[in-house]
């Protein structure tokens, strides 16, 4: 009995996982005004097959982009100054055979006829993040760093898929931090 269960668990855990192929090609920022810093992250996003299949079957997928402004404190590590998360949802709209990209920030629904277009749209929406921070708060003698990453919102997936994600690790869709200095 114990052996059977062990093999089952090992099989579930050792199944090959498909990682979201996303890459931050480049990132930049610009002060929109004295209180808002617009961060632009240029992404290439390719969903794993299992999520593509899930999308095709009507499951909505939510991705997060996280942007952080911080500075180094030596051995004490990084000190966070400001952070912002932005989520963008994508789903397949069977009635019109389009993919729908929803940006909750902008209360806007955008359509894309193909998944590639939808992912480009998604990358575009995820890559535009505004940090509300006053420029005067930043000390000129400190080197600030901006960091950005993209990750899948597991909790937004249906529970069975969360099981699957947890057990198989098939939805490891979190990129490493991309860092660049604040000018």
């Amino acid at each position: 009995m114990r052996g059977w269960f062990g093999w089952l668990l090992a099989g579930l855990l050792l199944l090959p996982s498909s990682v979201m192929a996303a890459e931050i090609r480049h990132a930049d920022h610009i002060w929109q005004d004295d209180d808002r810093l617009l961060v632009r992250v240029y992404l290439d996003v390719v969903l794993p097959d299992v999520l593509v299949e899930a999308l095709a079957n009507g499951i909505e997928v939510t991705l997060f982009s996280e942007v952080r402004l911080e500075y180094a404190r030596g051995i004490l590590g990084e000190r966070l100054v400001k952070e912002r998360e932005k989520s963008v949802r994508i789903r397949y709209y069977a009635l019109s055979r389009h993919y729908v990209v929803t940006d909750p920030d902008r209360q806007r629904v955008e359509l894309a006829p193909t998944l590639g277009d939808a992912l480009e749209l998604l990358a575009e929406r995820l890559g535009r993040v505004v940090l509300d921070i006053g420029r005067e708060r930043l000390r000129p003698d400190v080197d600030y760093t901006l960091s950005a990453r993209v990750k899948l919102d597991h909790a937004a997936l249906p529970l069975p898929l969360q099981w699957d994600a947890r057990l198989r690790g098939a939805y490891v869709t979190q990129l490493g931090w991309y860092r660049w200095p604040l000018r």
């Binding site: 009995m1 089952l8 579930l12 069975p160 099981w163 699957d164 057990l167």
Partner: peptide, 30 residues
């Protein structure tokens, strides 16, 4: 369309649903 999507989603998720139930049941059994 919502009914269709729900049905497709449910049909798609039956595999993971079964796996989840079986895993929980197997864990409890073990």
């Amino acid at each position: 369309q919502d009914a269709f999507v729900d049905y497709r989603e449910f049909a798609y998720l039956r595999g993971p649903i079964k796996q989840g139930f079986i895993f929980t049941m197997s864990l409890a059994l073990a």
